[in-house]
Write a protein that binds this DNA or RNA. Structure first.
Lengths: 173, 173
DNA sequence: GATATTTGATATGGTCCATAACAATTATCA
DNA sequence: TGATAATTGTTATGGACCATATCAAATATC
């Protein structure tokens, strides 16, 4: 829980085998060659994903929201009145693993489970007022701190092209 | 160990809340709206990464190589004679976690640890003959089955542009 | 030569992911 | 109708991956 206390920590950044280098004299065993690795899409994709999540967590530190939690809040806001199974499955989360996630969000009074009257097995999910407020602040943080930085790095057009290609992979691969 | 016995399994594919739909009549509670989620780079990035890894594992099923193992073999081949710390750190793997990985590769006779004569603390890593042969086959599988399919999906130019942008994120974000 | 550092390794704990199984409820259909 | 099957949320559990502390052996530093 508690969102990565280690988000800022070491973790072993790659491409940095020579650690405390000050680019002075020293023997300094030369850097390794990545070779074909840097052409492997899977490798680069994973690296990029870690960096993006890491930055996301930093941006959300004040709200203590993980990417997964943010996605749940977004989806519940957009689709109020759906049950756990529906929300979880469209996010690719297995129902058993979704329980603890909801326990967390509910304990923080960000969303609520409501026993459905139609089908008394299922729990309808809705955002609380606090949940709506937090999500609104989260959206602003993401837009101004997170996505904005990607625009700076890639440019608006490239960022959209990137998103399009990733969507294509995610949906059609 | 043993590389994902569940690579082919269910796992709960997203964007498929309505399960056994045959597009017949039926009530069929309409699909959920993803909304802003599909514009979140982190979300799409993660989805794409999972798909790519999944496909990678399928392509490598005959060789039983995970993406991480493949990257180790590639890096050791390109940089023979380096020790565990160097290989692990350039891959972003922490030394303690690298031990079991190497135990696995070594037990399959794909690479070998050799006590260094210069520094008797460290283990020099090299590919065995079998390791070289397996890696060669792995490269072919990746090229013909994995990367080729991405070219089909995106086109050569787009695939390269994608790789460039992801590298930029991985390195400069 | 005393002290600190590095290397590979072990132990351990956390998080995420996946499966089986269960009680309560609802759907099916003989 | 009532027996059986299916669904929902849940618990328990195990595996994979990641991160930290710690250790002995070897080396570096002073």
């Amino acid at each position: 829980m508690t969102v990565s206390k280690t988000a800022e920590k070491s973790s072993e950044k790659p491409a940095d085998a020579a650690k405390g280098r000050k680019d002075a004299g020293e023997p300094q065993a030369e850097a390794l060659q990545l070779g074909e690795l840097s052409e492997q899409l899977g490798y680069v994709l994973k690296r990029a994903q870690l960096k993006v999540f890491e930055n996301f967590l930093r941006c959300m530190a004040s709200l203590q929201l993980t990417p997964a939690q943010f996605s749940v809040l977004l989806l519940v806001e957009k689709n109020p009145g759906r049950n756990q199974t529906e929300i979880a499955s469209t996010l690719g989360i297995l129902r058993p693993n979704f329980v603890a996630m909801l326990d967390n969000l509910e304990s923080r009074d960000l969303c609520a489970r409501i026993r459905s009257t139609n089908d008394r097995r299922s729990h309808i999910l809705v955002l609380t007022d606090k949940g709506k407020a937090v999500l609104a602040r989260a959206k602003k943080l993401v837009a101004t701190k997170h996505e904005a930085r990607l625009n700076d790095l890639l440019g608006q057009a490239n960022r959209e092209a990137l998103l399009g290609m990733l969507s294509k992979i995610a949906n059609e691969f």
